[in-house]
Amino acid sequence: DFDYWNPANEIKTLLGRGNQNVFEDSVAPVHEAGLTLLWEDSHQIDANLRLDLAPGHTPGSSVLRLESGSDRALFVGDLMHSPIQIHEPDANSCFCEDPAEARATRHKLLGAAVDSNALVFPAHLGGHGAAEVVRAGSKFAIKGWAPFAKYTEAEQA
């Protein structure tokens, strides 16, 4: 994504300059300060966390995978903008830079979530928590929601 969104490369994006100045304002200064780590394909953060390439929404979209003991979770970021995309993984948002690749990536990751019993944490589906996903023919369905726990101040201490 670094090269794709860098305006110096003059790549024609789906929205054109719809994200004008985002790179210059929020990415370039951090990179110029030496605070970025650019990676390709996957990046192991620690023993439990890994970033994996999940292209389609953008060429460098990624998914954060958590594996701890038998627990699995996929934090899917911009891969899903609506719960309908779990039931209809071929449905794209209007922001997908490569619609065909976005559909293929959604199918692949939802299938991986089912196969590994991973909870799916979609960033754009506020308030629900994580989805437990099951197969429904060639598509998928939400078996249930694993809600975010509500803690009292005493429990947090």
Results as ranks from 00 to 15, higher is better:
Asp71Tyr: 11
Thr58Ile: 10
Val63Lys: 00
Ser42Lys: 05
Ser42Pro: 06
Ser61Lys: 10
Pro55Glu: 02
His57Lys: 15
Gln44Phe: 03
Gln44Asp: 15
Phe75Lys: 06
His57Pro: 11
Gln44Arg: 12
Pro55Arg: 04
Leu64Asn: 01
Asp41Val: 11
Ile45Asn: 13
Leu38Ile: 12
Ser70Ala: 12
Ala73Leu: 08
Asp46Gly: 01
Asp71Leu: 11
Gln44Ile: 01
Trp39Phe: 04
Leu74Asn: 01
His43Ala: 05
Ser68Thr: 09
Leu74Gly: 01
Ser42Asn: 06
Leu53Thr: 08
Gln44Leu: 02
Ser68Asn: 14
Ala47Phe: 05
Asp71Phe: 13
Arg65His: 12
Phe75Val: 05
Ala73Asp: 05
Ser68Leu: 09
Gly60Ser: 02
Asp41Trp: 13
Asn48Thr: 10
Ser68Asp: 10
His43Gln: 13
Ala73Val: 07
Gly69Cys: 03
Ser70Trp: 07
Glu67Gln: 12
Asn48Ile: 04
Ser68Val: 08
Ala54Phe: 00
Phe75Ile: 07
Ser68Met: 11
Ser61Pro: 09
Leu74Val: 05
Ser62Gly: 15
Pro59Arg: 09
Glu67Trp: 08
Asp46Cys: 00
Ala54Ile: 00
Val63Met: 01
Ala54Val: 01
Gly69Arg: 08
Trp39Asp: 07
Asp52Val: 14
Arg72Phe: 14
His43Met: 08
Ser62Ala: 15
Ala73Asn: 08
His43Val: 07
Gly56Cys: 02
Ser70Glu: 12
Trp39Ser: 04
His57Phe: 14
Gly60Glu: 00
Gln44Thr: 04
Ser42Gly: 06
Arg72Ser: 09
Leu49Tyr: 10
Asp52Ile: 15
Leu37Trp: 15
Val63Thr: 00
Leu64Lys: 02
Ser61Ala: 15
Asp52Glu: 15
Asp71Ile: 10
Leu37Pro: 15
Ser61Thr: 05
Asp46Met: 01
Gln44Lys: 12
Leu38Arg: 09
Arg50Ser: 03
Arg50Met: 06
Ser62Phe: 13
Leu37Thr: 15
Leu38Pro: 12
Glu67Ile: 07
Leu66Ala: 03
Leu74His: 01
Ala73Lys: 11
Leu38Trp: 12
Trp39Glu: 05
Pro59Cys: 07
Gly60Trp: 04
Gly56Gln: 02
Leu51Ala: 02
His43Thr: 09
Ser62Trp: 05
Gly69Ser: 05
Arg65Ser: 08
Pro59Ala: 07
Ser42Arg: 05
Pro55Thr: 01
Leu37His: 15
Asp52Thr: 14
Ile45Lys: 14
Leu38Met: 11
Leu37Glu: 15
Asp41Tyr: 12
Ala47Met: 08
Leu49Asp: 11
His57Tyr: 14
Arg50Phe: 04
Leu51Cys: 04
Pro55Cys: 03
Ser70His: 11
Asn48Trp: 09
Leu74Gln: 01
Glu40Ile: 09
Gly56Pro: 03
Leu66Glu: 04
Leu74Met: 03
Glu40His: 14
Leu51Gln: 07
Leu66Asp: 04
Ala54Cys: 06
Ser68Trp: 05
Ser42His: 09
Ala73Arg: 10
Leu38His: 12
Leu49Glu: 13
Leu53Lys: 06
Phe75Thr: 03
Thr58Gly: 07
